[in-house]
Nucleic acid binder design. Structure first.
Lengths: 291, 291
DNA sequence: AAATATAGCTGACATTGGTCAGATAAATAA
DNA sequence: TTATTTATCTGACCAATGTCAGCTATATTT
């Protein structure tokens, strides 16, 4: 009897649920209830505001307060009133708390590493994980504004260029293309956005400002693992919204007929094809959209 | 900054943990604590013996007993002493319990279906899930003896034949090959095993008995998603153990040089290459092993 | 300034999950 | 037969989690 698609997903779910149970058990080994460990983790991962942690973990305010108190009693966490608003509090790890956080991290990392070591095909396994994480996390994607020179942005851009050089018949060399100056994609002239899914970059897009009169969409990239989830469309919405905020009246972009899914998307989103508006050697299709 | 392999696994883990949390929440929506829902689920999925359920869910005997009692009070479950051993008890769903179980199943199925509907590439997504589930569940694989004519066995065999016809230059047609009579792969003459991972078949292997004097390994197949995890080796161990139990003094098998990983495995396991011992048109490599 | 809203804390309480030491009844060994 | 082992159940207990109403201090609105 052939397993149905649903059977396969359910089996996946069962396996993975068991796995997270094992992980939780190993966390308990550090002598702290799971709730407290989760709060410690959230703080260690950079969440500072008590309210933000509460929302992220879905905790009742009373429970949150008590967990925080127990971490303070252990000497792992310090809380202070937020400078701008003394009703709110920010939590920070002490030295000891940082060490404890790292111990939990080690548990997770070791487990991840062992999985990797026991699998014959890392690349496929990781690609599978990226694909699933993107599919499951598609509603939790955050569009973060970033400096295009940040390491994360640079990584996205390098993936983007690598993809172009794979897909263009004649290859792609970024120095031959009109490489927008980073400062043109930074406020107040423009902007650059990275799509983050659970802390991992899975897409990016830039808005290059042209003397305040018009803007250009550049460097729109979505990780292969996240394609088909309408992420590019959502990135475009973010970029257009920003262009409107910056008072731009028109947006343009260039692309290439060797990227047919991109061309199709711009058409679908209501962009109109126009004449060539630059002398970049790579693009051969040009679009415009009035805001 | 490039995400490391560990980053990618951890992100996967976070996403999937959130997902299971959501699932658990939706289970709570039926007004029953998670523990009780899990027991109901185990029974619905065919686990009957109280002890087996307890082991599967990792519950303390006292807690198990109380959860079972609460399900009985709700009229969802009936327990009876086991016929062979009246100390043990078997639990069965009542009509009402069956309906409640189905309601939980619907929740899971609906969620799975929605994921499927929202993804552009079902085949890749499912393959990714199979790959990960096999990697994570590799230590929980069960080798179940089955009739080779069972639907599950038939499905494995059809996958096996499909693979052969893809990989053999001249294709493969089962009726041209020496198709062992199913009864030769059933006790007491032989055996057929299916490797089950969380309820899904991911591999199989048969032992064909030849008049009690010697045995032949047939139909050794491992699902593509589970390759590289030494599953074939473990299947071979199970088959050899059974051959010994059946008093066979020697095992033989035939294979094909177009399946180099299989040939390499037999060599690695200490099998010795021998002369052709049958007139099957497909194999061109023959092995033997004394027990 | 007074009223209102917000963020977090505290105490009281219920539920759930988990543990343990017997109790009971049936099976098995001596 | 009697003693021992096994499978489950019961009662007592505890820690963790979750919920709620009210409290305090600060910010915001009127």
């Amino acid at each position: 009897m052939q397993p149905t698609d649903i059977d396969r997903i359910r089996r996946f779910h069962r396996t993975v649920t068991r796995e997270t149970g094992v992980m939780d058990q190993s966390f308990l080994g550090r002598g702290r209830p799971l709730g407290a460990a989760r709060v410690l983790n959230a703080i260690g991962r950079g969440m500072e505001e008590v309210g933000a942690i509460r929302d992220y973990l879905g905790l009742d305010s009373g429970l949150m307060s008590r967990l925080l108190r127990s971490l303070e009693d252990e000497g792992l966490v310090e809380t202070h009133p937020a400078p701008q608003d003394a009703r709110r509090r920010v939590a920070r790890l002490t030295h000891k708390g940082r060490a404890e956080f790292e111990a939990y991290e080690d548990l997770s990392n070791t487990r991840a590493q062992r999985l990797l070591d026991h699998h014959p095909n890392r690349a496929d396994l990781l690609a599978a994980m990226d694909l699933i994480a993107s599919a499951l996390g598609q509603h939790a994607v955050e569009f973060v504004e970033a400096d295009p020179r940040d390491p994360t942005s640079v990584w996205c851009l390098s993936e983007y260029f690598a993809e172009l050089s794979r897909r263009f018949e004649r290859g792609f060399e970024v120095h031959l293309s009109r490489d927008p100056e980073a400062t043109d994609m930074i406020a107040p002239k423009g902007a650059f956005f990275v799509a983050m899914s659970d802390g991992l970059p899975i897409g990016c897009g830039g808005l290059k400002g042209h003397d305040g009169t018009w803007g250009e969409v550049k460097r729109l990239w979505v990780s292969p693992a996240a394609r088909g989830l309408k992420l590019a469309t959502r990135l475009m919405e973010v970029i257009e919204a920003r262009a409107r905020d910056l008072g731009m009246g028109v947006l343009r972009l260039d692309t290439n007929s060797q990227l047919p899914e991109a061309v199709a998307m711009y058409r679908r989103l209501g962009w109109t094809e126009i004449e060539r508006f630059n002398d970049d050697p790579y693009p051969d299709v040009f679009f415009e959209r009035r805001l």
